[in-house]
């Protein structure tokens, strides 16, 4: 298979998986349905999709305060072994992996109010999962981003757009705090993406704005209005729709509504 065909294959798999995560997020089914192709553990394409989604896989579980279904845990575990984190990965990829690993490490007990970066959480029982987690956390943990304070609003927005899967409830860390701290820069970045009609990037940034608002920060944009605009004008990709749905849920939580 050519590289382009492989890329297209993976992108399609991500779309399918994002669509199923979106369905689980919108559904009211308890326990949550598994979303990954657990019956095809050796399907590299399906595993790649799981790795691309990363922390997004946990979105329904986190919003419903439910554990991640075991089949999804197993698939994620396999995916981490087939596509292990590497020292050469981008800062953004390493932070996504670190968050994925931390969420897995919360075990089957569901949300951990201490957040994924609190030390001492027990690993899950399975040896393989433990190994995958140790590897992910070990590599992703070496994250040097001291230069972060020097970023322009454009650079910060680009970085945060790639880190959008970290904008989740019950997940805390430096980037969630930075979203609140730099809410004006991200508002500018979202406006810029909207004007460039780059709706996927705009949706990722608005997801961060929704998180910041849910944690008491004041975006310079009216987030619900932007969400509406993106829903009506945005590209109909499942990944973008998931970003928008997560943003909506984050806002709903702020307003005291159901999550």
């Amino acid at each position: 298979m050519s590289n382009a065909a492989l890329g297209a294959d993976y992108a399609q798999a991500v779309e399918r998986l994002a669509g199923r995560v979106l369905g689980a997020l919108r559904g009211t089914q308890v326990p949550l349905p598994a979303v990954s192709d657990a019956d095809r553990p050796a399907d590299t394409t399906a595993l790649a999709a799981v790795r691309v989604m990363g922390p997004d896989l946990f979105a329904p579980a986190l919003f419903c305060r439910q554990p991640l279904p075991q089949p999804d845990r197993d698939t994620l575990d396999t995916a981490l072994r087939v596509f292990p984190p590497r020292p050469g990965d981008s800062v953004e990829a390493r932070w996504r992996d670190r968050t994925t690993a931390a969420l897995l490490a919360r075990g089957a007990a569901g949300a951990d109010p201490a957040g994924p970066y609190a030390g001492g959480e027990p690993y899950a029982d399975e040896d393989s999962e433990r190994a995958a987690l140790a590897e992910a956390a070990g590599i992703a943990g070496i994250v040097e981003d001291a230069e972060d304070t020097e970023l322009t609003w454009q650079e910060r927005s680009q970085r945060m757009a790639r880190l959008a899967p970290l904008a989740l409830p019950e997940v805390d860390g430096p980037y969630q705090q930075r979203a609140c701290l730099h809410v004006r820069a991200l508002s500018r970045g979202a406006t810029r993406s909207l004007m460039r009609r780059d709706h996927p990037t705009a949706a990722r940034l608005v997801r961060w704005l929704a998180l910041a608002q849910s944690r008491g920060a004041s975006p310079a944009l009216d987030v619900p209005t932007v969400l509406d605009h993106l829903r009506l004008w945005g590209a109909p990709s499942a990944r973008t729709a998931l970003d928008l749905a997560i943003a909506r849920r984050l806002l709903a939580a702020t307003e005291g509504g159901p999550r």
Partner: peptide, 12 residues
């Protein structure tokens, strides 16, 4: 707040 964004968008 917004002049830098508009300037950036149209300069690009």
């Amino acid at each position: 707040t917004w002049l830098p964004v508009w300037t950036d968008v149209w300069a690009e």
